[in-house]
Computed example of a mutant assay.
Amino acid sequence: MTEDERTAVDLLAGVARGLIELTSVAQTAMFRLPYPSSLQLALDRVVLAGLTRHMPTPGGVPELLSWCRERRPADWWPLELPVGFLTADARLIHSVGDEATRTCAELASYGRDGVLEQEAETLLAELANTCGTVERFAACRDFLISRPVILQYNPIELLGPAVAHTWKLVQHLYVPVPDRFRVHRVVHRCTGCLLLAKPVTADASWCEGGCQPEGRVLESSHQPEQARALPLGLRLFLALPGRTERAVRSGLDRQTRLLPQGLGLHRVTSPDGNLCVFQVQDREQPIPAALRAAEAAAELHGPLDIVAPDRLAASPGYRENFEYALSDGADVRLLSVSEFTGLRPAGRERNDHA
Rank of each mutant, 00 (worst) to 15 (best):
T7A: 15
A13F: 07
M30A: 14
S38T: 15
L41C: 08
L43Y: 00
V47K: 09
L48T: 15
G50Q: 10
G50Y: 07
R53K: 13
P62W: 05
S66W: 03
S66V: 04
R71K: 15
R71T: 06
P73N: 09
E80Y: 03
F85R: 12
T87L: 12
S95L: 11
V96L: 13
D98L: 09
E99P: 00
T101D: 02
T103A: 08
E106S: 06
Y110V: 03
R112T: 15
R112W: 09
L116P: 03
A120S: 11
E121L: 05
L124S: 08
L127K: 12
A128L: 00
C131Y: 03
F137Q: 04
I150E: 05
L151D: 09
L151W: 07
N154S: 11
I156L: 14
E157T: 14
K168E: 15
H172Q: 12
V183E: 01
C190F: 08
C190L: 10
L194A: 10
L194C: 04
L195C: 05
K198V: 01
P199T: 08
V200A: 03
E208C: 05
P213Y: 02
L218T: 04
E219L: 10
A227F: 01
L230G: 02
P231F: 10
L232N: 00
R235D: 09
F237C: 11
A239S: 13
L240A: 10
G242D: 02
R246L: 10
L252D: 02
D253Y: 14
R254D: 09
R257A: 12
Q261A: 15
G262I: 07
N274D: 13
F278H: 09
P286C: 07
A290P: 07
R292A: 15
A294F: 08
A298S: 14
G302T: 08
D305A: 06
A308R: 02
P309L: 05
D310E: 13
R311V: 11
G317Q: 08
E320Q: 14
N321K: 15
S327I: 05
D328W: 01
G329Q: 04
A330C: 08
D331R: 14
L335T: 00
E339A: 13
E339W: 01
E339I: 01
L343G: 13
R344S: 13
A346W: 00
A346M: 04
E349Y: 10
R350C: 01
N351L: 04
H353C: 04
A354F: 10
